[in-house]
Design a binder for these strands. Sequence first.
DNA 1: CCGTATCCCCGGGGATACTG
DNA 2: CAGTATCCCCGGGGATACGG
Lengths: 137, 137
Amino acid sequence: MTSSVPVSTAAASAAQAKESVTCPMDFILRMLMGPWTTYILYNLRSHGPQRFGELKRRVSGISAKMLTERLRTLEGASLVKRDYEATIPPKVTYSLTKRGHELDDVMGRLAEIGMRWETEDAAARAARAAEQLRAAE
Amino acid sequence: MTSSVPVSTAAASAAQAKESVTCPMDFILRMLMGPWTTYILYNLRSHGPQRFGELKRRVSGISAKMLTERLRTLEGASLVKRDYEATIPPKVTYSLTKRGHELDDVMGRLAEIGMRWETEDAAARAARAAEQLRAAE
DNA sequence: CCGTATCCCCGGGGATACTG
DNA sequence: CAGTATCCCCGGGGATACGG
């Protein structure tokens, strides 16, 4: 998700709405589609609540600016919770909200489908390669 | 999804892989996350196979360049099928592949969750507004 | 440690014009 | 009709430096 992941422009969304061809899952996908979002949610799921720096280290390559922006967005969508402890040094912990966990089974299904396709594609490639060899003989 | 939706950069993906914190659903989400992608899949689902111009009209606001690029990507991922008839004028029809339809139930679930959240949020806003009024009296 | 502020650059994507 | 080619511009996002 390094590239920009502008999902759709506001103008486009407006246009969609006008045409009343609105997509019910657009809102939620627009969220998931954000750059780095899946990595963030995935890490919060698999490693549990964690601090900003921890998360930043795990989602390798992300900039602080980007991570902050994504977390704020997810927070705004009530998918992620931010816990601030005003100790010195300060300690901020992020975790999935109840709503965030509602995506668990969908995420699981997507992961399952993704993995199945991956193996199917690998098998197809292997079959093609074998065919190539056979033809070459 | 008007904005650019570069999901993650190749570098980021590579970094992820290196850290072996790979997300199994990343591939598939990277696909769904592409700009306009959901609109396209949604339209192909609800209106069935259709021609380029038809699709372009429905996904209002999208440019020909973008639509072409997205369709090529979806084709490459075997989610969409392209049928070309060399008549004059030429006729090109796009439709979901079998694999494309494998996303149907996940899409359905996402749509359901999205709509539920929408109504929940609307209710919450209404409650808040009512509270405001009550406080103002 | 957890951010925000500033700067700057690159390329994504729209508009237009043109071809098969 | 279904694209491709060209141009051009805007802002997304990284790097750096700094504040709470």
